[in-house]
Every structure is written in structure tokens, then in C-alpha cells.
């Protein structure tokens, strides 16, 4: 009798801990430091806040050469904290994550930020895109850069990916006169693939892709 009771209690507990059906995926809400920011002092840790509790699959911190720095990732509910083994150096840091939300959906992402003084951007370059939207990137060196599109977009996003990095860097698009712009940090040299989704005030969207190459 007692055994049956215990079994019933344990069985109910089991049902409680099994995952509740969730219909929304986790999204990155914000990070500290924020993506594309310039901070005066190296942060002791990097925090990502998601829209709901997640489990950690993978995380990493990359230095300004794109090389992995030893770090530890810890999840507390919807917050992921990445702590580097040793203090981050001045320059550009990138943090990447892969997490899974309650509904089993896996998302990945990355942020980049500059510690100390941003370096010079170098010579602006035009980016060949398809469909061809005239696109100009404000520099040729890693750092804070601005992409300008000859498209009267009022919203959208620019997503940058690199073969040497998991996750992608997302820059929000905003109107700038008769064109549109997005600003953020491209963290290291090499080829970067850009996918820009440009949406104008009437809701018309164009998705254009291209590649920019950065030199150290």
C-alpha cells in the first residue's frame, strides 16, 4: 500500500518535471556588453539574456584574431554568463552561443564589441550584392563599421557570417536620408558574407547578399 502511494507520488513528480509544451522559441533579448558597442574597460564576464529559459549547448569567446579564448559558460534560467579564464585584452572580442529552448528549438548567435579605443577603419569598400543594391562598407579593417545601402529602407537587418565563427552577427537597419544604414562590429580579418534584409516604409522587402573582405 505504502509502496503504491510512493509510486503514485513519484509518478506525479515525473509528470511535473517533464517539459511543458512551449510554443515560442527563445530569442536573444539583450547582452552586456551590447552587440557593436565600444567599452572603456574589459568586462569580467559577458551576459546574454534570452526571452525564456534555455539550456546551453555551446559557447565561446574569440579574440581579435578569431582565436578561441578559454572561457566558461553558465546558464541561470534565461541568462547565460560567459566568464573568460583570464582578463580580456583590449581590442575586439566576440562571444558566440548555441542554446536550446524548452520546445527543443536550437538557436545560435554572436555579439562583437570593442574594448578600449576603436582602431582606424581603413579604406571604404563597395560590396557587390545580388540583387544588386549599391552597398558601401565604411572600412576595410576589423572594428566598428557602417554599411550604407542605396535603398530607402526603414527597417530590416544585416546578418554577417564568417567560416571561422559559429553564429552570426546581426546589425539593425535604419533609414538614413534617401538610403539606409546599419552599424556594428566586424571582429576579425577575412571574408564576411553579408545578407541584408531591407524593408521600406511600404513593407516592400529585398534580400540582398554579398561578400566583404577585411584585412588586419
Amino acid at each position: 500500500m505504502r509502496k503504491a502511494l510512493v509510486a503514485a507520488v513519484l509518478g506525479s513528480l515525473l509528470l511535473l518535471v517533464s517539459p511543458a509544451p512551449a510554443y515560442a522559441h527563445a530569442d536573444l533579448v539583450r547582452s552586456t556588453p551590447s552587440n557593436g558597442s565600444v567599452v572603456a574597460k574589459a568586462p569580467s564576464s559577458i551576459r546574454f539574456t534570452f526571452s525564456e529559459a534555455v539550456t546551453l549547448d555551446d559557447s565561446s569567446i574569440l579574440d581579435s584574431a578569431g582565436v578561441v579564448e578559454p572561457s566558461r559558460g553558465a546558464i541561470n534560467g534565461a541568462v547565460l554568463t560567459l566568464t573568460p579564464a583570464s582578463a580580456l585584452r583590449s581590442g575586439i572580442s566576440t562571444a558566440t552561443f548555441t542554446v536550446t529552448s524548452d520546445d527543443g528549438h536550437q538557436i545560435d548567435g554572436a555579439i562583437s564589441f570593442v574594448i578600449g579605443k576603436p582602431s582606424t577603419a581603413g579604406t571604404p569598400q563597395s560590396v557587390v550584392t545580388s540583387p544588386s543594391v549599391a552597398t558601401r562598407l565604411s572600412g576595410s579593417h576589423p572594428g566598428v563599421l557602417t554599411a550604407t545601402f542605396a535603398n530607402k529602407a526603414t527597417s530590416g537587418e544585416v546578418v554577417w557570417t564568417s567560416p571561422s565563427m559559429t553564429g552570426s552577427l546581426t546589425w539593425p537597419v535604419h533609414a538614413k536620408g534617401k538610403s539606409s544604414q546599419a552599424t556594428g562590429v566586424l571582429p576579425f580579418a577575412g571574408a564576411w558574407t553579408m545578407k541584408a534584409t531591407l524593408i521600406n516604409a511600404k513593407g516592400a522587402l529585398v534580400i540582398t547578399s554579398g561578400t566583404a573582405t577585411l584585412t588586419p
Partner: peptide, 18 residues
């Protein structure tokens, strides 16, 4: 707010509708 846009090769919007 579902929408479809048709764009020419030069990136200009040819048609757009909710």
C-alpha cells in the same frame, strides 16, 4: 502583416503587396 515583394535584378521593387 504577411507580404511578398518582387524585385528586379538591380534591386528596385517592381511589385509589393500585403
Amino acid at each position: 502583416a504577411d507580404s511578398i515583394s518582387l524585385n528586379a535584378a538591380d534591386g528596385t521593387n517592381v511589385a509589393n503587396a500585403k
